[in-house]
Nucleic acid binder design. Structure first.
Lengths: 216, 216
DNA sequence: ATATGCTCGACTGTTGACAAAATATACAAG
DNA sequence: CTTGTATATTTTGTCAACAGTCGAGCATAT
Protein backbone atom coordinates (compact mmCIF):
# COMPACT_ATOMS: atom_id res chain seq x y z
CA UNK A 1 0.00 0.00 0.00
CA UNK A 2 1.26 3.47 -0.81
CA UNK A 3 1.80 6.35 1.56
CA UNK A 4 -1.32 8.27 0.64
CA UNK A 5 -3.59 5.33 1.39
CA UNK A 6 -1.90 4.66 4.70
CA UNK A 7 -2.16 8.30 5.64
CA UNK A 8 -5.81 8.49 4.67
CA UNK A 9 -6.60 5.60 6.98
CA UNK A 10 -4.44 7.04 9.73
CA UNK A 11 -6.00 10.49 9.60
CA UNK A 12 -9.46 9.01 9.27
CA UNK A 13 -8.86 6.95 12.39
CA UNK A 14 -7.73 10.01 14.28
CA UNK A 15 -10.89 11.83 13.29
CA UNK A 16 -13.23 8.93 14.01
CA UNK A 17 -11.62 8.29 17.37
CA UNK A 18 -11.94 11.93 18.29
CA UNK A 19 -8.18 12.44 18.50
CA UNK A 20 -8.59 15.23 15.98
CA UNK A 21 -11.34 17.46 17.31
CA UNK A 22 -14.30 18.57 15.25
CA UNK A 23 -13.52 21.77 13.42
CA UNK A 24 -9.79 21.31 13.89
CA UNK A 25 -7.59 22.79 11.21
CA UNK A 26 -5.54 20.36 9.12
CA UNK A 27 -2.32 22.08 8.13
CA UNK A 28 -0.59 20.35 5.26
CA UNK A 29 2.95 21.31 6.20
CA UNK A 30 2.36 20.34 9.79
CA UNK A 31 0.96 16.94 8.86
CA UNK A 32 3.76 16.40 6.36
CA UNK A 33 6.38 17.04 8.99
CA UNK A 34 4.58 14.92 11.55
CA UNK A 35 4.38 11.88 9.29
CA UNK A 36 7.78 12.40 7.72
CA UNK A 37 6.57 12.66 4.14
CA UNK A 38 6.18 15.44 1.63
CA UNK A 39 3.02 17.44 1.16
CA UNK A 40 1.88 15.48 -1.87
CA UNK A 41 0.70 12.29 -0.14
CA UNK A 42 -0.89 14.45 2.56
CA UNK A 43 -2.82 16.34 -0.07
CA UNK A 44 -3.98 13.14 -1.71
CA UNK A 45 -5.17 11.77 1.60
CA UNK A 46 -7.03 14.97 2.41
CA UNK A 47 -8.60 15.00 -1.03
CA UNK A 48 -10.04 11.56 -0.49
CA UNK A 49 -11.31 12.42 2.96
CA UNK A 50 -12.96 15.51 1.54
CA UNK A 51 -14.67 13.42 -1.13
CA UNK A 52 -16.17 11.18 1.55
CA UNK A 53 -17.30 14.22 3.53
CA UNK A 54 -15.24 13.55 6.62
CA UNK A 55 -13.38 16.82 6.17
CA UNK A 56 -14.24 20.03 4.40
CA UNK A 57 -11.96 22.12 2.26
CA UNK A 58 -12.55 25.74 1.46
CA UNK A 59 -10.65 26.86 -1.62
CA UNK A 60 -7.39 28.54 -0.69
CA UNK A 61 -8.27 28.24 2.95
CA UNK A 62 -7.27 24.74 3.81
CA UNK A 63 -9.11 21.83 5.32
CA UNK A 64 -10.92 21.39 8.60
CA UNK A 65 -12.56 18.40 10.23
CA UNK A 66 -16.22 18.53 9.26
CA UNK A 67 -18.40 19.94 12.02
CA UNK A 68 -21.87 19.78 10.52
CA UNK A 69 -24.64 22.06 11.67
CA UNK A 70 -27.12 20.31 13.98
CA UNK A 71 -29.80 20.15 11.33
CA UNK A 72 -27.45 18.39 8.92
CA UNK A 73 -26.30 16.07 11.68
CA UNK A 74 -29.89 15.16 12.35
CA UNK A 75 -30.35 14.47 8.66
CA UNK A 76 -27.32 12.19 8.71
CA UNK A 77 -28.69 10.18 11.60
CA UNK A 78 -32.03 9.93 9.87
CA UNK A 79 -30.31 8.65 6.74
CA UNK A 80 -28.36 6.16 8.82
CA UNK A 81 -31.64 4.95 10.30
CA UNK A 82 -33.14 4.41 6.88
CA UNK A 83 -30.08 2.60 5.57
CA UNK A 84 -29.92 0.34 8.59
CA UNK A 85 -33.63 -0.32 8.25
CA UNK A 86 -32.98 -1.44 4.69
CA UNK A 87 -30.20 -3.73 5.88
CA UNK A 88 -32.56 -5.20 8.44
CA UNK A 89 -35.31 -5.79 5.93
CA UNK A 90 -33.00 -7.58 3.52
CA UNK A 91 -31.40 -9.56 6.32
CA UNK A 92 -34.81 -10.75 7.49
CA UNK A 93 -35.64 -11.87 3.98
CA UNK A 94 -32.37 -13.60 3.22
CA UNK A 95 -31.07 -14.85 6.52
CA UNK A 96 -28.82 -17.87 6.17
CA UNK A 97 -27.72 -20.05 9.11
CA UNK A 98 -24.21 -18.62 8.94
CA UNK A 99 -25.46 -15.06 9.45
CA UNK A 100 -27.94 -16.17 12.11
CA UNK A 101 -25.07 -17.58 14.12
CA UNK A 102 -23.05 -14.41 13.66
CA UNK A 103 -25.99 -12.33 14.87
CA UNK A 104 -26.42 -14.44 17.99
CA UNK A 105 -22.69 -14.28 18.66
CA UNK A 106 -22.64 -10.50 18.30
CA UNK A 107 -25.65 -10.26 20.59
CA UNK A 108 -23.90 -12.40 23.17
CA UNK A 109 -20.92 -10.09 22.92
CA UNK A 110 -23.14 -7.11 23.72
CA UNK A 111 -24.68 -8.91 26.68
CA UNK A 112 -21.25 -9.65 28.09
CA UNK A 113 -19.91 -6.17 27.44
CA UNK A 114 -22.73 -4.40 29.25
CA UNK A 115 -21.51 -6.00 32.46
CA UNK A 116 -18.03 -4.52 32.14
CA UNK A 117 -17.83 -0.92 30.94
CA UNK A 118 -19.30 1.47 28.42
CA UNK A 119 -16.22 1.48 26.23
CA UNK A 120 -16.33 -2.25 25.57
CA UNK A 121 -20.07 -2.05 24.90
CA UNK A 122 -19.27 0.62 22.35
CA UNK A 123 -16.90 -1.80 20.63
CA UNK A 124 -19.38 -4.68 20.69
CA UNK A 125 -22.11 -2.39 19.43
CA UNK A 126 -19.93 -1.64 16.42
CA UNK A 127 -19.46 -5.35 15.78
CA UNK A 128 -23.19 -5.97 16.10
CA UNK A 129 -24.11 -3.39 13.52
CA UNK A 130 -21.49 -4.55 11.03
CA UNK A 131 -22.89 -8.07 11.34
CA UNK A 132 -26.35 -6.73 10.51
CA UNK A 133 -24.91 -4.93 7.49
CA UNK A 134 -23.29 -8.09 6.20
CA UNK A 135 -26.43 -10.11 6.83
CA UNK A 136 -28.19 -7.95 4.24
CA UNK A 137 -26.21 -9.93 1.67
CA UNK A 138 -25.80 -6.73 -0.30
CA UNK A 139 -22.12 -5.84 -0.38
CA UNK A 140 -22.69 -2.34 -1.71
CA UNK A 141 -25.36 -1.44 0.82
CA UNK A 142 -23.20 -2.88 3.60
CA UNK A 143 -20.28 -0.71 2.57
CA UNK A 144 -22.42 2.41 2.39
CA UNK A 145 -23.75 1.65 5.85
CA UNK A 146 -20.28 1.06 7.24
CA UNK A 147 -18.97 4.26 5.74
CA UNK A 148 -21.75 6.35 7.22
CA UNK A 149 -21.43 4.55 10.55
CA UNK A 150 -17.77 5.51 10.73
CA UNK A 151 -18.56 9.06 9.81
CA UNK A 152 -21.05 9.32 12.66
CA UNK A 153 -18.80 7.53 15.12
CA UNK A 154 -17.61 10.70 16.89
CA UNK A 155 -21.18 11.62 17.74
CA UNK A 156 -22.18 8.13 18.80
CA UNK A 157 -19.32 8.32 21.22
CA UNK A 158 -20.89 11.42 22.72
CA UNK A 159 -24.23 9.69 23.05
CA UNK A 160 -22.53 6.91 24.91
CA UNK A 161 -22.16 9.17 27.90
CA UNK A 162 -25.81 8.72 28.74
CA UNK A 163 -25.14 5.55 30.68
CA UNK A 164 -28.76 4.61 31.15
CA UNK A 165 -28.96 4.16 27.38
CA UNK A 166 -26.96 0.95 27.48
CA UNK A 167 -29.63 -1.45 28.82
CA UNK A 168 -32.19 0.04 26.49
CA UNK A 169 -29.81 -0.31 23.57
CA UNK A 170 -29.24 -3.95 24.41
CA UNK A 171 -32.96 -4.60 24.62
CA UNK A 172 -33.38 -3.04 21.20
CA UNK A 173 -30.63 -5.28 19.86
CA UNK A 174 -32.53 -8.29 21.17
CA UNK A 175 -35.69 -7.15 19.41
CA UNK A 176 -33.79 -6.56 16.18
CA UNK A 177 -32.31 -10.05 16.15
CA UNK A 178 -35.66 -11.58 17.04
CA UNK A 179 -37.36 -9.85 14.13
CA UNK A 180 -34.62 -10.79 11.66
CA UNK A 181 -34.56 -14.42 12.76
CA UNK A 182 -38.36 -14.55 12.53
CA UNK A 183 -38.15 -13.31 8.96
CA UNK A 184 -40.26 -10.28 9.84
CA UNK A 185 -39.08 -7.76 7.25
CA UNK A 186 -41.22 -4.83 8.35
CA UNK A 187 -40.54 -5.51 12.01
CA UNK A 188 -36.78 -5.70 11.53
CA UNK A 189 -36.78 -2.49 9.52
CA UNK A 190 -38.84 -0.63 12.08
CA UNK A 191 -36.80 -1.96 15.00
CA UNK A 192 -33.56 -0.78 13.40
CA UNK A 193 -35.00 2.54 12.35
CA UNK A 194 -36.18 3.43 15.82
CA UNK A 195 -32.94 2.10 17.29
CA UNK A 196 -30.77 4.42 15.24
CA UNK A 197 -32.94 7.50 14.89
CA UNK A 198 -32.14 10.46 17.08
CA UNK A 199 -35.18 12.25 18.36
CA UNK A 200 -36.64 13.79 21.47
CA UNK A 201 -34.30 13.92 24.43
CA UNK A 202 -31.54 12.13 22.60
CA UNK A 203 -31.31 14.90 20.05
CA UNK A 204 -31.12 17.50 22.78
CA UNK A 205 -28.38 15.51 24.46
CA UNK A 206 -26.52 15.18 21.19
CA UNK A 207 -26.56 18.89 20.44
CA UNK A 208 -25.67 19.73 24.01
CA UNK A 209 -22.68 17.42 23.81
CA UNK A 210 -21.18 19.27 20.89
CA UNK A 211 -18.61 21.85 21.63
CA UNK A 212 -19.65 25.05 19.94
CA UNK A 213 -17.91 24.71 16.56
CA UNK A 214 -19.22 28.05 15.41
CA UNK A 215 -16.24 30.32 14.91
CA UNK A 216 -13.71 27.55 14.30
CA UNK B 1 -12.90 27.18 -8.66
CA UNK B 2 -9.53 25.52 -9.11
CA UNK B 3 -8.42 23.26 -11.92
CA UNK B 4 -8.79 20.00 -10.07
CA UNK B 5 -12.43 20.65 -9.21
CA UNK B 6 -13.26 21.66 -12.75
CA UNK B 7 -11.55 18.57 -14.09
CA UNK B 8 -13.33 16.30 -11.64
CA UNK B 9 -16.67 17.56 -12.84
CA UNK B 10 -15.61 17.37 -16.46
CA UNK B 11 -14.36 13.80 -16.24
CA UNK B 12 -17.35 12.80 -14.17
CA UNK B 13 -19.66 14.17 -16.82
CA UNK B 14 -17.84 12.25 -19.52
CA UNK B 15 -18.23 9.04 -17.55
CA UNK B 16 -21.87 9.62 -16.66
CA UNK B 17 -22.74 10.53 -20.22
CA UNK B 18 -21.03 7.42 -21.51
CA UNK B 19 -18.44 9.39 -23.45
CA UNK B 20 -15.81 7.48 -21.53
CA UNK B 21 -16.70 3.82 -21.88
CA UNK B 22 -16.98 1.46 -18.94
CA UNK B 23 -13.65 -0.15 -18.19
CA UNK B 24 -11.77 2.46 -20.19
CA UNK B 25 -8.27 3.19 -19.03
CA UNK B 26 -7.60 6.70 -17.69
CA UNK B 27 -4.06 7.60 -18.59
CA UNK B 28 -2.77 10.48 -16.50
CA UNK B 29 -0.32 11.82 -19.07
CA UNK B 30 -2.89 11.60 -21.81
CA UNK B 31 -5.52 13.45 -19.78
CA UNK B 32 -2.97 16.04 -18.72
CA UNK B 33 -2.07 16.78 -22.30
CA UNK B 34 -5.69 16.78 -23.40
CA UNK B 35 -6.73 19.34 -20.79
CA UNK B 36 -3.55 21.36 -21.00
CA UNK B 37 -2.55 21.03 -17.36
CA UNK B 38 0.07 19.10 -15.47
CA UNK B 39 -0.48 15.64 -14.01
CA UNK B 40 -1.13 16.87 -10.49
CA UNK B 41 -4.63 18.32 -10.98
CA UNK B 42 -5.49 15.22 -12.99
CA UNK B 43 -4.37 13.02 -10.14
CA UNK B 44 -6.39 15.02 -7.65
CA UNK B 45 -9.48 14.74 -9.80
CA UNK B 46 -9.00 11.00 -10.21
CA UNK B 47 -8.45 10.59 -6.48
CA UNK B 48 -11.78 12.18 -5.74
CA UNK B 49 -13.58 10.15 -8.36
CA UNK B 50 -12.05 7.02 -6.91
CA UNK B 51 -13.29 7.99 -3.45
CA UNK B 52 -16.82 8.25 -4.77
CA UNK B 53 -16.48 4.91 -6.53
CA UNK B 54 -16.98 6.17 -10.07
CA UNK B 55 -13.53 4.96 -11.03
CA UNK B 56 -11.27 2.31 -9.60
CA UNK B 57 -7.54 2.57 -9.03
CA UNK B 58 -5.27 -0.38 -8.54
CA UNK B 59 -2.02 0.59 -6.89
CA UNK B 60 0.73 1.06 -9.46
CA UNK B 61 -1.68 0.05 -12.16
CA UNK B 62 -3.59 3.17 -12.93
CA UNK B 63 -7.25 4.01 -12.97
CA UNK B 64 -10.13 2.64 -15.02
CA UNK B 65 -13.77 3.59 -15.24
CA UNK B 66 -15.58 1.32 -12.81
CA UNK B 67 -17.22 -1.60 -14.53
CA UNK B 68 -18.80 -3.48 -11.66
CA UNK B 69 -19.55 -7.15 -11.87
CA UNK B 70 -23.24 -7.86 -12.49
CA UNK B 71 -23.84 -8.99 -8.92
CA UNK B 72 -22.42 -5.74 -7.56
CA UNK B 73 -24.42 -3.76 -10.08
CA UNK B 74 -27.54 -5.51 -8.92
CA UNK B 75 -26.63 -4.63 -5.35
CA UNK B 76 -26.24 -0.99 -6.34
CA UNK B 77 -29.67 -0.89 -7.92
CA UNK B 78 -31.13 -2.55 -4.85
CA UNK B 79 -29.50 0.07 -2.66
CA UNK B 80 -30.81 2.80 -4.92
CA UNK B 81 -34.29 1.34 -4.55
CA UNK B 82 -34.03 1.37 -0.77
CA UNK B 83 -32.72 4.92 -0.67
CA UNK B 84 -35.43 6.17 -3.00
CA UNK B 85 -38.00 4.33 -0.93
CA UNK B 86 -36.73 6.19 2.12
CA UNK B 87 -37.01 9.49 0.24
CA UNK B 88 -40.58 8.61 -0.70
CA UNK B 89 -41.54 7.72 2.84
CA UNK B 90 -40.18 10.96 4.24
CA UNK B 91 -41.73 12.96 1.43
CA UNK B 92 -45.12 11.43 2.13
CA UNK B 93 -44.79 12.34 5.79
CA UNK B 94 -43.54 15.89 5.31
CA UNK B 95 -45.02 17.07 2.05
CA UNK B 96 -45.43 20.82 1.90
CA UNK B 97 -47.47 22.61 -0.79
CA UNK B 98 -44.32 23.84 -2.46
CA UNK B 99 -43.01 20.31 -2.98
CA UNK B 100 -46.46 19.06 -4.01
CA UNK B 101 -46.49 21.60 -6.80
CA UNK B 102 -42.98 20.64 -7.87
CA UNK B 103 -44.01 16.98 -8.00
CA UNK B 104 -47.02 17.72 -10.15
CA UNK B 105 -44.92 19.88 -12.44
CA UNK B 106 -42.28 17.17 -12.84
CA UNK B 107 -44.99 14.64 -13.53
CA UNK B 108 -46.46 16.90 -16.18
CA UNK B 109 -43.01 17.16 -17.73
CA UNK B 110 -42.82 13.37 -17.96
CA UNK B 111 -46.26 13.18 -19.54
CA UNK B 112 -45.23 15.70 -22.17
CA UNK B 113 -41.86 14.10 -22.83
CA UNK B 114 -43.26 10.65 -23.48
CA UNK B 115 -44.98 12.06 -26.55
CA UNK B 116 -41.73 13.26 -28.09
CA UNK B 117 -38.75 10.92 -27.78
CA UNK B 118 -36.98 8.65 -25.32
CA UNK B 119 -34.09 11.03 -24.78
CA UNK B 120 -36.28 13.84 -23.49
CA UNK B 121 -38.15 11.40 -21.26
CA UNK B 122 -34.79 10.39 -19.85
CA UNK B 123 -34.13 14.04 -18.97
CA UNK B 124 -37.56 14.55 -17.42
CA UNK B 125 -37.20 11.31 -15.49
CA UNK B 126 -34.03 12.70 -13.97
CA UNK B 127 -35.85 15.86 -12.94
CA UNK B 128 -38.70 13.86 -11.44
CA UNK B 129 -36.43 11.80 -9.24
CA UNK B 130 -34.47 14.80 -8.01
CA UNK B 131 -37.74 16.45 -7.03
CA UNK B 132 -38.65 13.38 -4.99
CA UNK B 133 -35.23 13.51 -3.32
CA UNK B 134 -35.71 17.14 -2.36
CA UNK B 135 -39.23 16.49 -1.13
CA UNK B 136 -37.77 14.21 1.55
CA UNK B 137 -36.67 17.43 3.26
CA UNK B 138 -33.46 15.67 4.23
CA UNK B 139 -30.57 17.39 2.51
CA UNK B 140 -28.07 14.67 3.31
CA UNK B 141 -30.27 11.82 2.11
CA UNK B 142 -31.11 13.78 -1.03
CA UNK B 143 -27.44 14.25 -1.81
CA UNK B 144 -26.68 10.58 -1.26
CA UNK B 145 -29.54 9.67 -3.57
CA UNK B 146 -28.39 12.08 -6.23
CA UNK B 147 -24.83 10.82 -6.06
CA UNK B 148 -25.88 7.21 -6.49
CA UNK B 149 -28.31 8.17 -9.23
CA UNK B 150 -25.52 9.79 -11.19
CA UNK B 151 -23.31 6.78 -10.66
CA UNK B 152 -25.96 4.49 -12.10
CA UNK B 153 -26.80 6.83 -14.95
CA UNK B 154 -24.80 4.93 -17.60
CA UNK B 155 -26.80 1.79 -16.90
CA UNK B 156 -30.15 3.57 -16.79
CA UNK B 157 -29.32 4.85 -20.23
CA UNK B 158 -28.96 1.25 -21.39
CA UNK B 159 -32.31 0.33 -19.88
CA UNK B 160 -33.87 3.17 -21.78
CA UNK B 161 -33.51 1.19 -24.98
CA UNK B 162 -36.42 -0.96 -23.99
CA UNK B 163 -38.96 1.45 -25.44
CA UNK B 164 -42.00 -0.25 -24.08
CA UNK B 165 -40.75 0.60 -20.60
CA UNK B 166 -41.64 4.26 -20.98
CA UNK B 167 -45.44 4.09 -20.56
CA UNK B 168 -45.00 1.72 -17.62
CA UNK B 169 -42.45 4.05 -16.07
CA UNK B 170 -44.85 6.96 -16.40
CA UNK B 171 -47.68 4.99 -14.81
CA UNK B 172 -45.39 4.19 -11.90
CA UNK B 173 -44.53 7.85 -11.55
CA UNK B 174 -48.24 8.64 -11.33
CA UNK B 175 -48.68 6.06 -8.58
CA UNK B 176 -45.67 7.43 -6.69
CA UNK B 177 -47.01 10.97 -6.70
CA UNK B 178 -50.47 9.79 -5.72
CA UNK B 179 -49.09 7.92 -2.70
CA UNK B 180 -46.91 10.83 -1.59
CA UNK B 181 -49.70 13.36 -1.94
CA UNK B 182 -52.03 11.06 -0.02
CA UNK B 183 -49.50 10.90 2.81
CA UNK B 184 -49.24 7.13 2.43
CA UNK B 185 -45.72 6.49 3.73
CA UNK B 186 -45.66 2.74 3.19
CA UNK B 187 -47.32 3.03 -0.20
CA UNK B 188 -44.90 5.68 -1.43
CA UNK B 189 -41.93 3.67 -0.23
CA UNK B 190 -43.16 0.49 -1.90
CA UNK B 191 -44.04 2.29 -5.13
CA UNK B 192 -40.57 3.78 -5.38
CA UNK B 193 -38.83 0.57 -4.40
CA UNK B 194 -40.55 -1.47 -7.09
CA UNK B 195 -40.05 1.34 -9.58
CA UNK B 196 -36.30 1.39 -9.15
CA UNK B 197 -35.50 -2.23 -8.43
CA UNK B 198 -34.06 -4.32 -11.22
CA UNK B 199 -35.37 -7.84 -11.31
CA UNK B 200 -36.65 -10.48 -13.67
CA UNK B 201 -36.45 -9.60 -17.33
CA UNK B 202 -35.08 -6.15 -16.65
CA UNK B 203 -32.00 -7.59 -14.99
CA UNK B 204 -31.42 -9.89 -17.93
CA UNK B 205 -31.77 -6.93 -20.27
CA UNK B 206 -29.36 -4.91 -18.18
CA UNK B 207 -26.65 -7.56 -18.16
CA UNK B 208 -27.16 -8.23 -21.84
CA UNK B 209 -26.69 -4.55 -22.58
CA UNK B 210 -23.27 -4.45 -21.00
CA UNK B 211 -20.32 -4.83 -23.24
CA UNK B 212 -18.19 -7.61 -21.87
CA UNK B 213 -15.87 -5.65 -19.56
CA UNK B 214 -14.02 -8.78 -18.55
CA UNK B 215 -10.51 -8.48 -19.91
CA UNK B 216 -10.48 -4.69 -20.08
C1' DA C 1 -10.21 56.36 18.90
C1' DT C 2 -11.98 54.06 15.02
C1' DA C 3 -12.01 52.91 10.38
C1' DT C 4 -9.67 52.23 6.04
C1' DG C 5 -5.93 51.08 3.01
C1' DC C 6 -1.48 48.87 2.37
C1' DT C 7 2.18 45.68 3.03
C1' DC C 8 3.99 41.47 4.54
C1' DG C 9 3.63 36.74 5.60
C1' DA C 10 1.77 32.19 5.21
C1' DC C 11 -0.41 28.74 2.86
C1' DT C 12 -2.42 26.61 -1.09
C1' DG C 13 -2.49 25.15 -6.05
C1' DT C 14 0.40 23.85 -9.68
C1' DT C 15 4.57 22.49 -12.10
C1' DG C 16 8.47 19.66 -13.68
C1' DA C 17 11.53 16.11 -12.42
C1' DC C 18 13.07 11.81 -10.29
C1' DA C 19 12.78 7.12 -8.71
C1' DA C 20 10.41 2.72 -8.08
C1' DA C 21 7.41 -0.80 -9.86
C1' DA C 22 4.99 -3.47 -13.13
C1' DT C 23 4.18 -4.97 -17.63
C1' DA C 24 5.64 -5.89 -22.26
C1' DT C 25 9.21 -7.33 -25.31
C1' DA C 26 13.06 -9.60 -27.04
C1' DC C 27 16.28 -13.12 -26.85
C1' DA C 28 17.99 -17.54 -25.79
C1' DA C 29 17.48 -22.31 -24.51
C1' DG C 30 15.04 -26.61 -24.57
C1' DC D 1 7.68 -23.75 -31.67
C1' DT D 2 7.21 -22.91 -26.88
C1' DT D 3 8.84 -21.29 -22.50
C1' DG D 4 11.62 -18.89 -19.22
C1' DT D 5 14.54 -15.09 -18.15
C1' DA D 6 16.46 -10.66 -18.56
C1' DT D 7 16.02 -6.19 -20.30
C1' DA D 8 13.51 -2.12 -21.65
C1' DT D 9 9.68 0.84 -21.63
C1' DT D 10 5.86 2.78 -19.76
C1' DT D 11 3.55 4.66 -15.90
C1' DT D 12 2.78 5.56 -11.24
C1' DG D 13 4.06 7.57 -6.59
C1' DT D 14 6.76 11.00 -4.44
C1' DC D 15 9.50 15.09 -3.94
C1' DA D 16 11.17 19.94 -3.94
C1' DA D 17 10.24 24.38 -5.72
C1' DC D 18 7.52 28.30 -7.61
C1' DA D 19 3.83 31.39 -8.10
C1' DG D 20 -0.58 33.22 -6.88
C1' DT D 21 -3.89 34.43 -3.42
C1' DC D 22 -5.91 35.30 0.89
C1' DG D 23 -5.73 37.03 5.58
C1' DA D 24 -3.50 39.38 9.43
C1' DG D 25 -1.27 43.18 11.22
C1' DC D 26 0.27 47.84 11.02
C1' DA D 27 0.29 52.51 9.68
C1' DT D 28 -2.24 56.51 8.51
C1' DA D 29 -6.00 59.60 8.02
C1' DT D 30 -10.40 61.39 9.50
Amino acid sequence: MNHAQRLRQRIEDEIVSGELALGARLDENQLAERFGVSRTPIREALLQLAATGLIQTKPRRGAIVSAPEPHLLLAMFETMAEIEAACGRLAARRLVPEDAEALQAALAGCRAAILTDAESYYAENYVFHTVVYRASRNAFLAEQALSLHRRLAPYRRLQLRARQRLPQSLAEHEAIVAAIVAGDEAGAAEALRSHVIVQGDRFTDLVAGLRAPSAA
